[in-house]
Design a protein around this nucleic acid. Structure first.
Ligand code: MN
Ligand code: MN
Ligand code: ZN
Ligand code: ZN
Lengths: 149, 149
DNA sequence: GCTTCAAATGCAACTTTATTGCATGACCGA
DNA sequence: TCGGTCATGCAATAAAGTTGCATTTGAAGC
């Protein structure tokens, strides 16, 4: 469990009832050091307690809507989910390994994005800027050279 | 048609046979001022010439593999496609309107991303850095305020 | 403690988007 | 003309998420 986040508080602060299912889903996300897919979250929660996959999707929608969790695009067809930035978690970019499909969180300061020119000129409303780094992770790198496919 | 790109040349330069279908798909992408979904591309091409949607998916895969076209993640479940950066087209970030689902290309200089800290510290291989700006486009902004849903 | 009612959950069917397998067709060179 | 390779078509399948509706749950009021 994350040192700084009380998951029950996160939920109630966001105006959400802290049901057991919601707590389990949020725990699965918060305890992971990298963003997880809905399927992975379902598996993780279902390991400890029966839960329908639709319920997981609905809980994820709710958590994202209320800003507790971030929906992170992988570059693949499915989304991943991670704790939304808050007092204890700065916003940060993510890395996506195109070989194993695993994401990882990058340090907030690893990329410096200057958004000022955009804010001045863009005619619409800007809600979020998402940066994703694609490549091959250090685990997959050795495998990459031998099997040329 | 883009002033500077000869689509036939783009294909043959990439080592691809310039079939009629491939040319039509590439034209649909290159003539658009914003990235298009596979479904939109299929509709566009099919309007002028019978083509199977699977063929469109396969052509898109081929074009992406050979670096002629970029697969751009929308923040939704489907991908969009745009011309890959080349001599006449600098890499640039994209904006995704979460209300109408339309993307648009942003000026290359609208966001300045400093990637140096990442290159120095990241232990894997970096192939690409994708930046997506989410929000509400100027067309949708008026609609947004009246219908609160 | 009982009742009530909205919110949460379960389950089946469905949708969207993309992929796979296999058959057919077109093209190019020998 | 023949052979082979690559492109295309078509049907079936897969992956990921959504919808509709029935059932359960649990907090609020009595
Ligand atoms: Mn993260
Ligand atoms: Mn573009
Ligand atoms: Zn990897
Ligand atoms: Zn819009």
């Amino acid at each position: 469990m994350c040192q700084h986040c009380n998951y029950g508080n996160l939920l109630t602060t966001a105006g959400l009832e802290a049901t057991a299912h919601r707590l389990h889903v949020l725990e699965a996300i918060g305890d992971s050091t990298f963003p997880l897919s809905a399927v992975a979250i379902h598996q993780s929660v279902a390991g400890r307690r029966a839960i329908n996959r639709v319920t997981v999707y609905r809980i994820l929608d709710t958590l994202v809507e209320h800003g507790v969790v971030d929906r992170i695009s992988t570059g693949g067809r499915a989304f991943n989910y991670g704790l939304a930035p808050n007092a204890h978690h700065q916003p940060h970019p993510h890395f996506y390994c195109t070989r194993c499909g695993r994401m990882c969180c990058l340090a907030p300061e690893s990329l410096n994005v200057d958004t000022h020119p955009l804010w001045k000129t863009f005619p619409g409303r800007i809600d979020r800027i998402e940066v994703r780094v694609d490549g091959v992770c250090k685990n997959c790198l050795p495998l990459e050279t031998q099997s040329r496919n």
